[in-house]
Amino acid sequence: MGLGGSLLGAGLGGALAAVFTRIARNADGSPLYPVALDAELFVTTALLATAVGVLAAWLPARRAARLDPVEAIRG
């Protein structure tokens, strides 16, 4: 799920950047804010987002795995 979400986010971000560069133009027709869309940037971003998501899920899961279920329910 995390990998799919990060890939979807990278794809949507790239699409929005491409649309923005086509819409936002100077009076002479050049892009107002030129954005360099590099495939390496998208891959790195997706991998970093996936790694952060895995760490954010792993740390609380490790802590919860150490709990005794009976004590967690009672307390």
Rank of each mutant, 00 (worst) to 15 (best):
P69M: 03
T50W: 08
L47K: 06
G75S: 14
A15Q: 09
A24E: 08
I73A: 14
G9E: 11
A56I: 09
A39E: 09
L47F: 07
L16C: 06
N26W: 04
P69Y: 03
A17R: 02
A46V: 05
A10Q: 08
R25W: 00
G29Q: 05
V52W: 07
A57T: 12
P34T: 04
T50Q: 02
A61H: 07
G2F: 12
A64N: 10
A24S: 10
M1A: 15
L7D: 04
P69A: 05
V35R: 05
A24I: 07
R74A: 13
A51N: 05
G4R: 05
P69V: 05
A51Y: 05
G13C: 07
G53D: 12
L59P: 00
L3S: 11
V54G: 03
A36R: 07
G11I: 07
L37A: 13
A18N: 05
A72P: 01
I23F: 11
L32Y: 15
L32E: 08
N26C: 04
G75Q: 14
A24L: 06
G9Q: 10
S6Q: 10
A15D: 04
Y33E: 08
R62E: 11
R62D: 08
L59V: 15
P34E: 02
V35P: 00
L55P: 02
L8W: 12
G53N: 11
I23N: 00
P60C: 06
V70I: 12
A46W: 01
T44A: 15
G29S: 06
F20W: 12
A51L: 15
S6C: 12
I23M: 09
R22N: 14
A18F: 07
G14I: 02
A65M: 08
V54Q: 06
T21V: 12
L16G: 05
A64M: 11
R63C: 02
W58M: 10
N26S: 05
P60I: 06
A72V: 09
D68W: 02
V54R: 03
E40C: 02
P34Q: 04
V70S: 10
A17P: 00
V52M: 13
L41C: 05
I23V: 15
V52I: 14
A56T: 13
A27L: 09
M1H: 14
A17C: 06
V54P: 03
F20A: 15
A27C: 00
P31L: 00
V52D: 00
A51W: 07
I73G: 00
E71M: 06
P31Q: 07
R74P: 00
D68G: 03
L16S: 11
A65T: 03
A46H: 01
G14Q: 12
W58V: 13
A10W: 00
G53F: 10
E71K: 14
A51F: 12
A24Y: 04
G2N: 13
R66L: 14
A17N: 09
I73H: 10
P60V: 08
A18P: 01
G14V: 03
T50L: 05
V19M: 10
V70N: 10
T50D: 06
